[in-house]
Design a protein around this nucleic acid. Sequence first.
DNA 1: CGAAAGGTTGAGTGCTGTCAACGTCCGTGG
DNA 2: CCACGGACGTTGACAGCACTCAACCTTTCG
Lengths: 231, 231
Amino acid sequence: MTACAQCLVRNRAICASLGPAELEELNKLARRQTIQRGQPLIWQGGESVLVANVIEGVLKLSTSTPDGREQIVGLVYPGDFIGRPFGETSAHSVTALTDARLCSFTRATFDQFARTHPALEHKLLQRTLADLDHARHWMLLIARKSARERIATFLIDMSHRLGQTNCAGPDALDSFALPLDRQQIGDLLGLTIETVSRQITQLRAAGMIDTPDRRTIAIRDRSAMAAIAGL
Amino acid sequence: MTACAQCLVRNRAICASLGPAELEELNKLARRQTIQRGQPLIWQGGESVLVANVIEGVLKLSTSTPDGREQIVGLVYPGDFIGRPFGETSAHSVTALTDARLCSFTRATFDQFARTHPALEHKLLQRTLADLDHARHWMLLIARKSARERIATFLIDMSHRLGQTNCAGPDALDSFALPLDRQQIGDLLGLTIETVSRQITQLRAAGMIDTPDRRTIAIRDRSAMAAIAGL
DNA sequence: CGAAAGGTTGAGTGCTGTCAACGTCCGTGG
DNA sequence: CCACGGACGTTGACAGCACTCAACCTTTCG
């Protein structure tokens, strides 16, 4: 029995808007769920049947063209919300990048609960507004920045995001495990796998980062990285 | 006295969620406002002091890097909502592309009203979720498509959007006035002005569109355009 | 009529994509 | 334990699309 009171993301998920009684009510509607790395959860264009809070792990949101080009349009971390409430279909796919634990609801159930709990809807609205700001900012990155700038921005960004996940507070990690392989980094930044590899090599050659193994990034010169990223 | 009952976008703006009494209440808080083409309304990074419904006209949302590269991250049409409620700062700038009429509120006033009217917040949430889907879909366009695909997609998209603005219903216009100049099309699609010009020239040479004057686009072969756009 | 703003066209460069070969890590099975 | 194979990543050669720089054309407006 994993009650909400012990939830890892109790204070960061949208549930934080609820009082004890309402939380218990919501808890009864929830289903704890684990999914494995690589496992898809929601399909682009499919009927929106599931929404969830991410308790642990990292997932990707992605869309693809009919001819197979893929773009990762967002990453989802613990405490984030996934799925498309109040809509018929999902605009993008959701896939686990690492093993993950979720607190999930059927969309119909969640929609109904949310409609009757304005505080929850408000929290969801705030989060959606922040997501929208973030997505639009990312458009600047993809449309206007060079490959090197994109890689630097991505690595700095990820060091912050993964740092916030820990209980230790909002610190930026200087060393972390990438939840994405090179192909996925390319899909996220709008680059090819070769360009990603070359840029990482150049950053390493410049002494700004280190790559002890293929999944680990160590930031050696954060200010230089930030300068390349354009703040 | 321009009351809400006669409002052009009465049924498409978020106000549609309100009953007559609440609408009158909101009306008292609103300020009708006109702004001229090119006039900025909200500044990136500035304090979020104003939100508004667009009654007439087209506006752009844009962000720029410190070194001057600009990206248009969204276009706003009649019935759409602009500004950043429930937040301290604006993540992007808002500028009128055509002369426009707004129904505006101070953010504090709107926030307070919205918090006490869940139906309005719900409508705003639905709209924000749709905007987010749209922004993420646009990321695919910018990151993965060629210049020609981007131009074709943009023109088809705009013919639909401007068609919906009219009372006539959700028709796609075959001829319309672009609210953007070439530079702005470039800023929207992540291209340079020269590339935009060349691609438009090529589409005209192929007989797919016509350009009676620099601001007018006439779509001659919609299915061919749609094919290039990738549906 | 002249100047300025906006737009088009041309020539050349460069960044990133494409194609291909090679290297490294790791699990599997002989 | 080592050989093998596949997934993943790196590096190299080359090409192409879009960018840059520049000249010229068109429209608008004083």
